[in-house]
């Protein structure tokens, strides 16, 4: 793919990193901004083709209406469910304090 550079700033990458919940240093942000510029320049080629009337494809094989009957199946035991937890307490997953509100 031909690479023409698209400009993307450190601030843009910082915003994306926040959305993606990845803490990054300024050096990392700068490095990534540069690389993303190149990659975006290359992938932007998709804008050259595919006119308005072309429908998008989200699924490779066009199936519809795949369902399951509403019958209970065994769950994991609480012990198995919690076995991999970094921290657990009272049968629950223990997580650090939640600062934001639920959506």
């Amino acid at each position: 793919m031909a690479a023409s550079e698209t400009s993307i700033s450190r601030g843009d990458v910082a915003h994306l990193a926040r959305l993606a919940r990845i803490a990054m240093t300024d050096a990392e942000l700068d490095h990534l901004a540069e690389q993303l510029g190149v990659i975006l320049g290359a992938v932007a080629r998709v804008q050259e083709v595919a006119a308005q009337e072309i429908p998008p494809t989200s699924h490779a094989v066009p199936l519809t209406n795949v369902f399951r009957v509403d019958e209970p199946r065994p769950s994991l035991s609480a012990e198995d469910a919690l076995a991999g937890a970094p921290a657990a307490e009272d049968g629950r997953f223990r997580v650090p304090q939640i600062l934001g509100e639920p959506q």
Partner: peptide, 21 residues
């Protein structure tokens, strides 16, 4: 009787993390 995308029960009030898969 079961969740939207799995066969876990939806009964209210079960012990925590016993209706998970």
């Amino acid at each position: 009787a079961t969740k939207l995308f799995c066969g876990c029960s939806t009964v209210f009030g079960a012990e925590p993390n016993t209706q998970v898969c």
